[in-house]
Design a protein around this nucleic acid. Sequence first.
DNA 1: GCCGTTTTCGGCCCGACTGTTTTCAGTCG
Length: 572
Amino acid sequence: MTNREIATIFSEIADILDIKGENPFKVRAYQKAVRAIEGLSEELRAIHARGELRQIEGVGGAIAKKIDELLTTGKLQYYEREKASIPDGLLAMLKIPEVGPKKVKALYEKLGIDTVEKLEVAAQAGKLRELPGFGEKTEQNILRGIALVRRGRERVLLADATELAESIVEKLSQLKEVSVAVPAGSLRRQQETIGDIDILVISHAPQKVMDTFTTLDCVAEVTAKGTTKSSIRTKDDVQVDVRVVEKDSFGAALQYFTGSKEHNIQLREIAMKRGLKINEYGVFSEKTGKMIAGKSEEEVYAALELPVIPPELRQGLDEIDAARDGKLPALLEPSQIKGDLHVHSEWSDGKNSIEEIVEACRALGYTYVGIADHSQSLGVAGGLEPERCEKQIELIRKINRKLKGFRVLAGAEVDIRSDGTLDFPNELLAKLDFVTAAIHSGFKQTRKQLTDRVRSAMENPHVTILAHPTGRLIGRRDPFDIDVVEILQIAKKTGTAMELNAHQLRLDLKDVHLRKAKELGVKVAIGTDAHDLTELRLMRYGVATTRRGWLESKNVLNTLSTTKLLKALKHA
DNA sequence: GCCGTTTTCGGCCCGACTGTTTTCAGTCG
């Protein structure tokens, strides 16, 4: 039973208890456990085997016992019982925006509505307004919510959300009434996918900001418009919220709206113990009500005797402990990246010549670029035959002779075949500056097959980097079933680096596994997998993801100087 | 259900907006 499956069960338990009107803190305890499990880099099975379940923050005796039951029997009696106690359809109803546990309960008990379909019919017939607390507007909102769920409320990729947010920020910034406009929320935390975009604005004329925001070209629908907060849905179906605050509360608001929710709850608990109260307007003394901080995030954290925690780390895991103990990492900065280690040229399925790539990379301030075109097996991607690869190496040497202060590294993205053998002979691999091995087929193999396959590739001394280790495409293809922790342990032994593929659809390895890599001392190589020059800019999302994984410059290969990098790649 | 430099009991983050009310509950983040 996977972490994901266990988290889903606890999440359903929380929903069921919520609908039944149980103690809300019990509901929250289950939700907290769900988030804790989702944040694990390790399988619960392994933690269970070591008897360390209760060391997980948010997992106490009762939940540990339930995890034990799930892992040993594959079932949970408590869950079966609770699930049987309410109709299945109620959980689906809860997924509709505007419909929460109280409404579900009322709809079910008073009108016998127990499916989304029945709810839709009743709303259309104007039956809901008979219930106390329900009116015509509520009916319309519920119908809209149902349509929204049917369309599938997909989360937006970090790169797409960033682009949209930056365009809105730019337009709001042009107003003379606006002094600052910045993204907050999960976007500022650089989460790999974004639900809603939050933008925070400092202005003394909030109404003007609200009016401008709700009438932007991209707006399809205004879902809320207040004096300091408005929400819209764009034509691309993304929800965007804008909040306006006063200058003196900006730090508190930025902290508050950056989240994560769990991080903020932890901060508030600390504040409470110190006789302080935090809200989006500032930090206040509980006794006197006097505001003691709020202008900047520095002030807010300082009021709790903490250094500012970088937004990417605010995940509600152990970052506050680390901050208190002075153990926050010096996270990787974009400016520390000296080159891209995964770029495709026109030799395989890329669009540009090596010379064009060099020029673009120099413009980005890099001092090297790793060309890694596909190998022969990948026919669809114009994979190189060994002879073509030899030719490419020659050309790269020729280009390098003409370059000053820049170096093209001759590499290849070599296919790991289904049987674990590599797609190029060793003699050829030996001539390359670096070899990135990757799985591009046979995703459906068993966990053991896939893990063994990658192991045999990594054990080849010429292989320096394992590309996109889990093969996932965010929102499109699940990661293949591979034991990432075991792969990392093998990498430690063989000295292989793990790629962080910075392509917007991949971000592979993901944050929790990067952190595990750091713990194990496995180096990370960031590559954009660019197939054209514009994709070279995806590096920023790679850097952001390493930051979420607590990586520092010393953990990342492409912060090294050319000489040191070449040496490190040979060693690997 | 979790948790403990006040605690093994009694707390558990906080406010905006909406729609329904005529002072507030529900939902959301």
